[in-house]
Write a protein that binds this DNA or RNA. Structure first.
Lengths: 143, 143
DNA sequence: CAAGATTGAGCCGTCAATCTTA
DNA sequence: TAAGATTGACGGCTCAATCTTG
C-alpha cells in the first residue's frame, strides 16, 4: 500500500536522525582519552577476541569502514602504540592484530565511561522494555 | 539496575549498526544522479520550504552538518547549478537558499527512486506495525 | 585469477579564526 | 558582543590501482 511506503520512509528518517543525534552527543562527551569513536570500536572488537587477535578482514565485519580505511586506521593505532601486528602463521597474506597493554588499558577506561554515557543517553528517553524493543527491531534490519 | 545499562548499550549498538548498514545500502544504490546523499538532504529540505527558501542556519537543523560544512556544501551545490543564493531582505548577514529548476528536477527524480529504495529496504525486514514502533522509539531519542 | 592488504590521489568534513552586520 | 556565514589548515575516509600470497 502507499501509506506503508510513507511509514517506511518516516521510520528510516527517524532512525537516521536518532543515530546521528546520539552519535554526536557521544562523540562530544569527554570520555575518549585521545582515541576516536572508530578507534575505540577497533579496541572494543579486539577486547572480545582471543589471544591471537583478529585479521583485518575480521575487524571489517565489526567496524564498518572500507578495507583501505581499516588499513590506515590500524596503521595509525599501531603508531600510537595501541595495537600491534603479527604475521598469521597459517596465511602469509594476512596479519593478526592484537591489543597492546596500553591499548587494553585505554579500552577499559574508555569503555567504562562511554558505556555509562550510552546508558545515560538511551535511558533518558526509553525504559527497559522499550530498549529491548528497539534492539529487536534494529537487529532485524541488520540481520 | 546493571542489566538496564547492558540493554541500553545493546540497543545503541543495534541502532548504530542498523543505521550504518541501511545507509550503506542506500548510498550504493543507483538512484543518485550525481548528488551525494547529503546534497539530496539539502534539496529535500528545500523542497518543503516556501518560495523564499531557507537560511543556512535553518538548513542546519535539517541536515546535521557543521556550519562550516554547510557553507561548503552550499557552495558546491551552487556551483553545480542545483541551488542559488539571494540576499535576505530583512537581515544583511543572512542569505536565502533556493532551489533552481534543475535542482527541483533532480530532487523529484532522486526522491522518487530513493524513496522506493528506502521502502524496499525497510519493509524487507519489518511490517507496517513494526515500522510505526521503530519510528516512535527513534523519535523519542531525538526528542 | 582470487583474497588479504597497502598506497596514491582526491574529496569532504571538522576546528579555529575571521569577516560582516545586528 | 553576539549571530550569520566564510575561509585556511588539516585529518581521515573512499575509490582505484597495486603488490603479494593462496
Amino acid at each position: 500500500v502507499a501509506s506503508r511506503t510513507r511509514i517506511a520512509n518516516e521510520a528510516w528518517e527517524a532512525l537516521f536522525r536518532a543515530q546521528a543525534t546520539v552519535a554526536r552527543e557521544l562523540a562530544a562527551a569527554d570520555v575518549w582519552d585521545g582515541v576516536s569513536p572508530r578507534e575505540y570500536g577497533v579496541l572494543y572488537a579486539l577486547s572480545g577476541a582471543g589471544p591471537d587477535g583478529l585479521r583485518m578482514s575480521e575487524l571489517l565485519a565489526d567496524v564498518l569502514v572500507t578495507q583501505a580505511g581499516m588499513s590506515r586506521l590500524v596503521a595509525r593505532m599501531e603508531g600510537a602504540g595501541l595495537i600491534e601486528r603479527a604475521e598469521d602463521p597459517g596465511d602469509g597474506r594476512a596479519s593478526r592484530i592484537r591489543m597492546t597493554e596500553a591499548g587494553r588499558a585505554v579500552q577499559r577506561r574508555v569503555g567504562l565511561r562511554h558505556g555509562r554515557h550510552v546508558a545515560e543517553a538511551m535511558t533518558r528517553a526509553l525504559d527497559a522494555d522499550e530498549l529491548r524493543q528497539l534492539r529487536a527491531l534494529c537487529s532485524r534490519l541488520t540481520g
